[in-house]
Nucleic acid binder design. Structure first.
Lengths: 372, 372
DNA sequence: AAACAGATCCAAAGCGCTTTGAATGGCGCG
DNA sequence: CGCGCCATTCAAAGCGCTTTGGATCTGTTT
């Protein structure tokens, strides 16, 4: 990573000694508590308490203080508050950039949109950290020991995610978006029921007469992908169908990968008559592969996709393009935020979690198995 | 917006008076400067200076301090640093969620990935604020008066964006990702040369013999969309072609919209033989419309798209799917971050800006105009 | 009338860091 | 030897807020 600036940075920032840089002191012009209390002829204590809703201040005084604060545009300095309260009022989101987590990207924007809504409403800030590779563990240690955040959202959990025991050891409150199958210690999570969603998708295809059913999945060390596969396989086996390994694909959920995986399956001697796809973007690639092969969705090959209900990738207007198992990732963001905040403010309570059920939306991409 | 928690929040957070909540004091267990200096038998001054790279400390002492800090896992408390330095070491990104800005979403994840890289390297934090509607102005005033951030990135600028004069008035350093055509005051920005990109796309299509050239654009109150249209129109007019209003579409850049716009154009008596599309996602919709109409890209209708080079939406592996004007939004994120940091640390310098040129990538979606 | 309780307010002590201004000790120099 | 000069180090004063532990003043109880 090249640094093009004049200063002598290596990976880690080395502090404020920068003799050639003149920094204007930020916020030095803003009104502070002392000034406001002098204007009001009150003590800082009373003004602070009035604004923070403490009961031991007369209601008349409180109103006077609130008016003055508004009039003079007083906002408590956030750094001072953090220091005095010993809390940062900040939630951390750590986004790893390794290829293994790349899938976080498309859903990420919507998730934080949901979470951010709740943070604003509850007075929390959101801090994003992009971490390029292995040193993710150091990041969490740092966040803890510097008091940067009061809690953390864990994105894209793996089957046995090392972050979970680490955060427990650090005693840093956290909520996982998803779950980690191989971890039995209780912790907070918000997840969609991936297994039941894909099981229902499988059952639906079977009810349409399909037996040769494919899966175009995400990388299966990701927990959600593992669960989806298990759900689909359960549906097949319940119907007496042995899953065909040639029909099971796992890879990054990009348009290209969806396309290539579908194309490869179509090249088999007996290609599947239906596929379940783990993401909307991959499903677009699947559709392209079908188009190229001169096949029509529903008529020739049925397609069901998982739809995260992303704001910029809608599955049709009134009529859904794809039959889909749908669950709003933005809603998951909201719930995760609420869970984390309540866990931060009530740390002794037992870890909560929330399992969301996905809806099965019938669209135009599924139909009865074609007659041969 | 419903709040489901027990506390009495309305829109704005009302402070820490929550008698029924027991909050564990965060970070209280971490090593602090005083403890470290006592262990070392040095003053806090010397330890602080040693760690921050000040020259007036003996090299032997500095090493001793650094070792001890590492050994005891000392990290300066961030709230205390903010307070003492009068700077927050934080960059704010304010994301409005109104439909008018929805387009920010898909590119947003990649942009902050790029910017975040640079923030980490330079010791800055990234703070994200999701703002649901009109009160965006209040957010900026707050950020300023609370000292929450040292600078701001402005996303998705409009033609005459009110945020720019506001931030100038607030004296809050900022960099615009994009530009605002109607504002003449100088300010910092990083933008791709949208006009020249679309002009070249137009010229390329004309060189292939196309005359009936369509545009499926973003919403044209967004500055970038306006520039793209102007660029394409310039190319047409230079070739003596009068732009046909029926061929010019502006809307949100979703897959659906791309599909609908293309479908509408194909329904015209004389449909265009080529279209330029403002986003990759919309181009996927265009392709779908062509497929549905039994038309082949390149052979029947040529398509050029703008490609933001998103990590999760690659334009093909080795062979590009679409002919495209490509510019990496992640790279724009890196540059914006660098510009902002240098502007924060050197506030007296004149506003800088950076204009990136997009590459024209020839893919499989363009070909000579079909013979009638 | 004395004692008490409650309501309201305040001075001052932190929170953990940076930074100012001064002190200390070693050194060369006239 | 006495002086000034570096190179190091330190004590103490903030930064702007919260919060502890009274203080003051009312009204109420015995």
């Amino acid at each position: 990573m090249q640094v093009q600036r004049g200063m002598d940075f290596d990976q880690t920032y080395k502090g404020p000694y920068c003799p050639h840089i003149q920094i204007a002191l930020a916020g030095s012009n803003a009104m502070n508590l002392k000034q406001l209390s002098e204007i009001l002829g009150l003590s800082q204590t009373t003004v602070s308490r009035a604004l923070n809703g403490y009961p031991e201040v007369a209601e008349r005084t409180r109103l006077r203080v609130q008016h003055a604060a508004q009039k003079h545009n007083y906002q408590p300095n956030i750094g001072a508050q953090r220091l005095a309260r010993g809390r940062s009022m900040t939630i951390g989101h750590v986004i790893p950039l390794s290829t293994q987590h790349e899938m976080v990207n498309p859903v990420f924007a919507d998730f934080i949109a949901g979470a951010g809504e709740r943070y604003s409403a509850c007075g929390y800030d959101m801090k994003l950290t992009i971490v390029d590779d292995q040193n993710e563990e150091d990041i969490y240690r740092d966040l803890k020991s510097r008091g940067s955040v009061d809690g953390i959202i864990v994105h894209g959990p793996l089957m046995n995610d090392p972050r979970i025991p680490l955060l427990q050891e650090l005693d840093l409150p956290f909520v996982v978006h998803g779950r980690a199958s191989d971890i039995e210690m209780p912790y907070c999570w918000v997840d969609v029921n991936n297994a039941s969603a894909f099981q229902r998708a499988g059952e639906f295809l079977i009810s349409l007469g399909h037996r040769r059913i494919g899966l175009i999945n995400g990388l299966e060390h990701m927990d959600f992908a593992h669960r989806r596969r298990a759900g689909l396989v359960a549906a097949l086996e319940a119907a007496g169908v042995t899953p065909n390994p040639d029909y099971l694909h796992a890879g990054e959920m990009t348009e290209i990968n969806g396309h290539n995986a579908m194309k490869a399956m179509l090249a088999l001697d007996t290609p599947p008559t239906a596929v379940v796809v783990a993401s909307f973007i991959a499903a677009l690639g699947v559709r392209r592969a079908l188009d190229e092969a001169g096949l029509r969705m529903a008529r020739d090959v049925s397609v069901i996709t998982f739809d995260d209900d992303l704001s910029y990738l809608r599955n049709g207007d009134s009529i859904p393009i794809f039959t889909a198992t749908r669950s709003s990732v933005r809603q998951a963001g909201r719930l995760s935020a609420d869970l984390l905040i309540s866990h931060i403010e009530n740390p002794t309570a037992a870890p909560e979690h929330k399992l969301l059920e996905a809806d099965l939306i019938i669209g135009n991409s599924t139909g009865p198995v074609p007659q041969e």
